[in-house]
Amino acid sequence: MLIENLIFITFAVTLIASAVMVVFGQHPVRCALFLVLAFFAAAGLWLILEAEFLALVLILVYVGAVMTLFLFVIMTLSIDFEKMKQSFLRYYVPLGVILVCGLVTLMFYITSHAHADLIKLIPMQHVPADYSNTKALGGVLYTTYAFALEVAGVLLLAAIVAAISLCVRDVVDSKSQRVDEQIAIQPKDRIKIVKM
């Protein structure tokens, strides 16, 4: 129990500290890397709640894929970040402070004694070692929630189409290799034998 608490505190502090660094970091690439660290800490927290599938998917999808794209983009953009930071400090910091204050007030309001019945604090049930929550998730996701799954599929399709139509401009005269045409070529298309 003691170790669990210790690990929880470590992850929680890492999460908050790196989240703060994301906002106040020196360079966008560093901010993005701190965001990666924040995702890691969040995955650790989910693992403590024994949600192993979700924790690993968080690492796989967010750390492994989404943040890679972020880094790709941030690393290759040449924007004057100092300038951006100036306007950021002027406009967005006050807005952020107001939002955070609102959120903290809400959290206090909900968890205060007056509303203790809203969240029933159930002690966490430790699952047996052979319990696989991936299986439990799979059991319902593709049957009970099949419709939601299809909606997700449509969203992904829309994203694919949008990404391609935004990025691909020059369809016509690309000089790429077309293997099927190369294979299909016959000698008589290329060589003309002239009788001398």
Partner: peptide
């Protein structure tokens, strides 16, 4: 960038396929 975006989308599909497969 396009490769990276498509990678995210296909990676998500994989994440959906994993629990389905088992």
């Amino acid at each position: 960038y396009l490769v990276a975006i498509l990678f995210i989308l296909f990676d998500l599909e994989t994440a959906f396929l994993f629990p389905w497969a088992i």
